[in-house]
């Protein structure tokens, strides 16, 4: 999946904002974080991830992002609707860069944000992105 695809196929899905750098990868897959950050990172606040795409897929929304910090322990995704506050939608391993959020209501608009947690310390929140399944 890739930014260019979104641009080339505006009807395909949704709303997004994107970083130029997120195209061009080969989707070579999520691997496990390679270092034990908590031990050597001390009290350093990790950098926040960046949401790159929100795509309508099989009745849900597929969130993709880039990780500015390579050794997050977890990435926590939050979502909200127009009338509600943010709630945690998913928690995935720190090297993950995508998650499908399936159990959504068709036609409702959802907004997402992410943060990275490393050694018990949270990053700031990512950018927000909204979409409608």
């Amino acid at each position: 999946m890739n930014l260019t695809a979104r641009l080339a196929r505006p009807l395909a899905a949704l709303v997004f904002a994107v970083l130029p750098a997120c195209g061009g990868d080969d989707n070579l897959g999520t691997t496990d974080a390679s270092t034990n950050a908590a031990a050597d990172a001390g009290a350093t606040v990790p950098a926040a991830p960046t949401i790159t795409m929100l795509v309508k897929m099989t009745g849900g929304l597929h969130v993709s992002w880039t990780n500015a910090t390579k050794d997050c322990d977890t990435i926590i995704g939050e979502r909200k609707t127009a009338s509600d506050a943010y709630v945690v939608a998913f928690t995935v391993p720190g090297a993950a860069d995508n998650k499908h959020d399936a159990l959504l209501t068709a036609g409702m608009t959802y907004t997402y944000r992410l943060h990275c947690v490393r050694g018990g310390i949270s990053s700031a929140f990512s950018n927000e992105m909204s979409g409608t399944p």
Partner: peptide, 12 residues
């Protein structure tokens, strides 16, 4: 080592 977590892109 092999990753222990399978992300949703890979499942799809």
């Amino acid at each position: 080592t092999f990753p222990t977590y399978l992300d949703d892109n890979s499942k799809m």
